[in-house]
Design a protein around this nucleic acid. Structure first.
Lengths: 128, 128
DNA sequence: CCTTGAACCTCTAGTGGCTAGAGGTTCTAT
DNA sequence: ATAGAACCTCTAGCCACTAGAGGTTCAAGG
């Protein structure tokens, strides 16, 4: 049984974030000591790692909640989880292509020669 | 002189967003009719378009405020504006490369064969 | 000139995903 | 026994909007 501080260290998560996840139902409510402090077991570390990894991959808390629910039901469709992951992949790809066009435009604007005569910044005039 | 609704239409911006920008100092406070309704001129359309375009490019409201200030000062360094744009470009590139690695991982996980025997979803087990 | 109803006004509160701080309690090591 | 590190709850703040309540004003048609 470890404290919240230790759990935070092991999962590279800030303490308030852990409490927030508990309150949001992404992590089960921890056992408590007599003095009301949280104590965590092995499973808690795994679950939190799962949540963190999903977050890194860009899943929303809602997505993660849904995956946990689906996973908890052993009879239930892996295909549903697949679906979530697939739509996440699509979203990631969409974001990439959007960012790439931003990159192109910013690069173009920054490459423009500085027009000292007009006194106007090329970056500004090209952004309007 | 056009109404806020017309301005919203012309710039593809929601009305509350325009009021929010005004309150946030990104757009000058509009003239008012006797009945206290906002009326906008030609410049307002341009300014709002500039703000919207910057937002599309991912600049923060703070960045935009700063660019507007810098632009308003004619003696002042275009180089400062350049700097903002450059750091924005760097941020965009960082986001792209992060998203690409997410894309790779999601693709990998989704390509895994479905293990019907274990009853466990490959997506879940690979996310832990 | 009067009425209708679309468009406007302000103000408050909610979104997501945390993060920070105040003010107080408990644990642990000496 | 005591110091101080770590914990507790609760509230409020961050960004960039968005939604809704409840009330006012505008513009067009009769």
């Amino acid at each position: 049984m470890i404290s919240i501080g230790e759990l935070a260290r092991r999962t590279a998560t800030k303490i308030p974030t852990i409490r927030y996840y508990e309150q949001a139902g992404l992590v089960p409510a921890a056992d408590r000591t007599e003095g009301n402090q949280r104590r965590y077991g092995r499973e808690a570390v795994q679950r939190l790692q799962f949540v963190r990894h999903c977050r890194e991959l860009g899943f929303s808390l809602d997505d993660i909640r849904e995956m946990i629910l689906l996973d908890a039901d052993p009879d239930l469709p892996c295909s549903a989880i697949h679906g979530i992951a697939e739509s996440q992949l699509a979203a990631v790809r969409a974001r990439i292509s959007r960012l790439k066009s931003l990159e192109r435009e910013l690069t173009r604007i920054l490459a423009l020669p500085h027009d000292a005569s007009s006194g106007q910044c090329a970056v500004i005039t090209n952004l309007v």
